[in-house]
């Protein structure tokens, strides 16, 4: 089996996205770090991506649960 030693930009972006949701494996995270050292564009993407994550967290944006929405829809439907 060949061991992967470098990420393409596409793979790096994918790992970076996953990392925003803490779903990136340790080995992928390492490969991502290596890639970021050599690739300026992906570094920028990574910064922006992180920033979006921070925005989403700090804004404390909230959504209704699916169950609640379903209940509202049914209620509306009964009046339609």
């Amino acid at each position: 089996m060949k061991i992967k030693i470098a990420f393409s930009c596409k793979e790096a972006a994918h790992a970076c996205d996953k990392h925003q949701y803490k779903e990136c494996s340790k080995s992928d995270r390492m490969l991502l770090q290596f890639h970021l050292v050599i690739c300026k564009l992906c570094r920028e993407y990574s910064t922006q991506n992180k920033r979006l994550t921070d925005f989403m967290n700090s804004s404390a944006i909230a959504t209704l649960s699916r169950e609640k929405k379903e209940a509202m829809k049914q209620q509306l439907r009964s009046y339609l």
């Binding site: 909230a62 209704l64 439907r77 339609l80």
Partner: peptide, 18 residues
């Protein structure tokens, strides 16, 4: 389009209200 209201606006209204 009342049938679309929940999908389209519920989250927006919720943030407005909360």
């Amino acid at each position: 389009h009342p049938e679309k209201w929940v999908d389209r606006y519920a989250d927006y209204l919720f943030n407005y209200t909360i």
